[in-house]
Nucleic acid binder design. Sequence first.
DNA 1: TATGAATGAGCCTTCATTCAT
DNA 2: CATGAATGAAGGCTCATTCAT
Lengths: 206, 206, 206, 206
Amino acid sequence: MPAPQHAQPRTARGARTRAALVRGAREVFERDGLVNARIADIAAAAGVATGSFYSYFATKEDALAAVLDDVTDEMLHPQVREAPDPDAGPLASIEAANRAYLLAYRRNAKLMALMDQVFTVDPDFKQQRLRRARAFARRNAASIRRLQEEGLADPALDPLAAAYAMDAMVSRMASLVFVGGHRMGFEELVATLTRLWANALRIPAA
Amino acid sequence: MPAPQHAQPRTARGARTRAALVRGAREVFERDGLVNARIADIAAAAGVATGSFYSYFATKEDALAAVLDDVTDEMLHPQVREAPDPDAGPLASIEAANRAYLLAYRRNAKLMALMDQVFTVDPDFKQQRLRRARAFARRNAASIRRLQEEGLADPALDPLAAAYAMDAMVSRMASLVFVGGHRMGFEELVATLTRLWANALRIPAA
Amino acid sequence: MPAPQHAQPRTARGARTRAALVRGAREVFERDGLVNARIADIAAAAGVATGSFYSYFATKEDALAAVLDDVTDEMLHPQVREAPDPDAGPLASIEAANRAYLLAYRRNAKLMALMDQVFTVDPDFKQQRLRRARAFARRNAASIRRLQEEGLADPALDPLAAAYAMDAMVSRMASLVFVGGHRMGFEELVATLTRLWANALRIPAA
Amino acid sequence: MPAPQHAQPRTARGARTRAALVRGAREVFERDGLVNARIADIAAAAGVATGSFYSYFATKEDALAAVLDDVTDEMLHPQVREAPDPDAGPLASIEAANRAYLLAYRRNAKLMALMDQVFTVDPDFKQQRLRRARAFARRNAASIRRLQEEGLADPALDPLAAAYAMDAMVSRMASLVFVGGHRMGFEELVATLTRLWANALRIPAA
DNA sequence: TATGAATGAGCCTTCATTCAT
DNA sequence: CATGAATGAAGGCTCATTCAT
């Protein structure tokens, strides 16, 4: 009897409400985490009634997934102000990429922490985690493959496997510093990760 | 504010009960995670009454901290069956260390997932996370320093910073594979991480 | 800290539920006292679910405060059946007032006992107690001042201080008899208190 | 099978333990009130094990009764430094008695509040309250009777009833000021109560 | 007597979800 | 679509009391 819920909004008003809920959810999740976030608070932060939440999301996790998808998109496609000079050599490219990632991580630290949390717990989030990791790894694997073809990177490495590992190194360090509070200067962090990344791939020094 | 509860046991009997509770907690946490674990279940698993839990722990988190401390100890001080041949060269040592770590991680995957979860969420766990990371990093930093002194590792690297980064790479990959379910063979994982580790430090091939 | 609960009802339906809860609370508090009253019982007496209690009250004490406010209002503004004859002289007025108070006290003895209890214990109730005492004292102080001006009462007395003391005498005796079970006939109680009150103010005999 | 418990101590050691428990109970009751006082805290304050409490008291109320009996004794038989001059006239005697009572009340305010609380709640304490009230009233009734015989007090008053009422006035005012926090200077309190008392009995001015 | 660990019934409180308006 | 009051299962936590040592 009940109409199918949680559908995409069909009216402009509905779209606005849904967007407000996502904004509200982000605000509340950042402040309270997944477990302590309450549907009522999310609705309140969105300026709508509690019941309205269920017109757009089936569960809290649903709403979080929407928020996290947004963040992943933001981090994968950063608004690049100045594209790295392609002629500056691979080292400069790696540094630029790491810097951009770390800045984005720092900016979204609360949500990244949340991501780590739910990725390891809720089975429904596992797929999202793997998708996210794959997206980053594929992008980096392409770079590595290119460098290998140019004779600038260790040809013995599997590009995809190496990309996963490098991403692992960077994201875990970002977590340790920006979420865990490990004391390390931002520039030192960029420099260390970039050098290790370059070494690991056996990229010749500029 | 009244009387302090959850004290250390003052009796042999109390020590036994506390130990049973830690065992019970480990069992339940591995099965249900932090949020879904119920105090009553932990007590039941330990074979004691619900109220007894509170004689030794103030909260569920308290009990988890005790469990995780145990696991960290186990992973830091593995019961080495066959010590790695010190003459086999640094590469063999690195591989042996990585293999041991990854095996331990896989064995304790459930708890490691839990660790990731609470480390990023509960402020009270942050310190524990940093302590754990520092313990691993210091141990590895010592190895790196030794290799540098022998002229076998990139002298430009800060040993401690590099150690943190290498540990980050390995632990995050372990999480991705053993917790996240990323498809990757165990031997390939060991080989990839070992090669990248060696490359990153510029350890000459054997 | 999150969302503020226990707000004022924003709906007619909400107002009805709140009123039902106050009625239910009165019933349960009269029967069981503060400590032994259970939230679940109050909700049941009001015909609502347990959780609904918390939509309107933060604590049991909160609900009791609402009940006691009602009772104080009832006792301060009794539904006077026959107004005392103003020409019957001050003694008759005092007797009528005392009789009305004692009747009301006896009628609400259970709640008055509860009032005494919580007034002396819970710091949050202290203000309520002082407010109640002040309300009674001010009303009586006005009478005393009028009598002094007419030359019918000891001019050396501070009207407000005397009013507090007279109220203290009457209310404590009411407690002793109607709550404590001290054996004393109602008419003897009225007569004794009235005579002492008149003497204390040096009101000349009619 | 179990031996009769809560008996009077039969050994010197037992007497010492019991005394320590009463002291501890007084300390805890003053701090936490009846409901929030925990047996374990009382035992701790007495420096004994929890279980020992039950060797001397059946319940928390039992222990409180012992404490309150002590206080009542203290207040009925104050350590008079300077006996009131019997020739100074009845007014001076009344003032001295009121002053002594109010000082004692103020000194034991916490326990007096507790007394008010439990007297109105626990049926087992009602008898204790009536006994206490009777003890005070009888003492004062004797004075009133004497004054009546000397033609110095209203002969129409029933001495005992009047004594109860005067005690009620004084004790309630003491509660209002020293427990409730009603603002009133100590000397003004003494003066007001003494004058009203004297008026009420129609004691001629000195 | 003294000890203090163990017990477990009992109540409070939360909050996702529903549904009448 | 929006509202927000109502629901009630579920579990955390306390603490008086017991009892083996």
